[in-house]
Design a protein around this nucleic acid. Structure first.
Lengths: 239, 239
DNA sequence: CGGCCGGTTGATCGTCGTCAAGTAAGGTGG
DNA sequence: CCACCTTACTTGACGACGATCAACCGGCCG
């Protein structure tokens, strides 16, 4: 059940069996959250952190005029609010984009891990640092890339992340986001979001329908995006 | 010398004298970096992390067409590349915006801290999490705020951050960024950057000249920005 | 069958980038 | 001390990009 998490953590540094056991004992109780439901409410102060076992989730903030900005997308294996362990108060909400399966780690247990398991602690810390690296890449995309390049970059990132948790088939993956939701990722109107997608289709680099994205020409897509996956830190380092 | 760092860390949770001592022993050698010089090069794999003692620094990425996006701004007390301790490879550069004074912590020493000082480790981790929270707020600003609101938000954030390290005088602070540099923060052209600044001036909420920013009407500025400082996590929590 | 949701397209308008020019301040060399 | 740079900021004109308003299509569900 925790395999996606093991895949994610051990893509940074190998996990010992003892550490896997420790995580199994820490991460408990799973529940289902249906699409469009909040997994964690903005402003709450949870006493546990949520691990996404399956499905897609998003962190988001709402503005007074009702608009929404999604600040990150999450897939199986992602510790979606591990930062709440130390940040305490949620400064944003997290919602299920598709139906999601969630498991929990009590903050008290995480604290014990920081007292007793320094290596595992560093891996969990690293996990949150990769979140930060993704945030930085999104900032670059929003500030200085064309909208087409931004979308191309997002697709490259999702493909690579999904591949490490074995959720791609060949050059395809399932992306259960409506164009309206996607537009809240890129900060666009839905109309223009649609046109940007059309542009990538017309370039012949992707096929996309019924929530299935197929990358027809990875090299050209990566070139449009100027995609450099260093920031995802997927090369295994020695412990 | 490390007082700014202590101010930053102890605004999260109080530091014990032992922990302050430990930091003093860990953070050594300071040097000066002049404005516009790189402090850390993109692609490098530093064996130490840099603490900014004074001055302003920025993390940035360059794109192939020569444009630049700044992904964060740093002030005295900020551990500007603490994430490199675990991320290993820099996926972005860090440059001095004004003349900067820098001290260093060897990664080997930081690793010892994670083995021996769990509470201090959590504080350092938390420090990187606040970076992430700031990134998220910037993403929201770039995606869904008007440019005027984005700038207002940035000024609010900088004012609050500078205040906690005692670098404000009344409602004023020194901001040694040219408008061209600022435009690489907001993702704008320099021409439009200038016009956005004019707009805030005309609203009478700020005065700004010779690198001195004075906030004339905090409430209106915060209202334009929809500024909610929760994300900076400045309320002191118990240990 | 009718309504709703997601996707698509056209028309129009505002925001913002680009090109261009001009001003003010500071620094250098004669 | 002044002629001449350079750098930072400022303003105007114009065009491209993206938001908004509006309409329409197809599939799904009650």
């Amino acid at each position: 059940m925790l395999e996606p998490l093991f895949h994610v953590l051990s893509r940074y540094e190998s996990l010992s069996l003892h550490e896997e056991e420790r995580l199994r004992k820490t991460i408990l109780f799973d529940r289902e959250v249906f699409a469009d439901q909040d997994i964690v409410k903005a402003g709450s102060e949870p006493d546990r952190s949520s691990l996404l076992l399956s499905g897609f989730a998003a962190r988001y903030k709402l503005l007074e005029n009702g608009s929404r900005q999604i600040t990150s997308l999450h897939v199986a294996g992602d510790f979606i609010d591990l930062h709440a362990f130390l940040l305490k108060k949620m400064d944003h909400g997290i919602m299920a984009i598709s139906d999601c399966r969630i498991a929990y780690a009590q903050h008290a247990e995480l604290e014990k891990i920081t007292e007793e398991e320094p290596h595992l602690t560093r891996l969990l810390w690293l996990n949150t640092l990769v979140d930060g690296a993704i945030h930085r890449e999104w900032i670059v995309a929003m500030g200085r890339r064309s909208k087409k390049a931004h979308l191309a970059h997002l697709l490259c990132e999702l493909f690579v992340r999904l591949k490490t948790v074995k959720l791609t088939k060949g050059q395809s993956f399932t992306l259960p986001l409506s164009q309206a939701t996607l537009s809240d990722v890129l900060g666009l109107s839905t109309v223009h979001m649609n046109r940007v997608i059309q542009a990538l289709r017309q370039d012949g680099v992707i096929r996309w329908s019924n929530q299935q994205v197929e990358i027809l020409q990875w090299d050209r897509l990566a070139e449009i995006a100027e995609f450099d996956m260093t920031y995802l830190r997927l090369e295994l380092a020695e412990r």
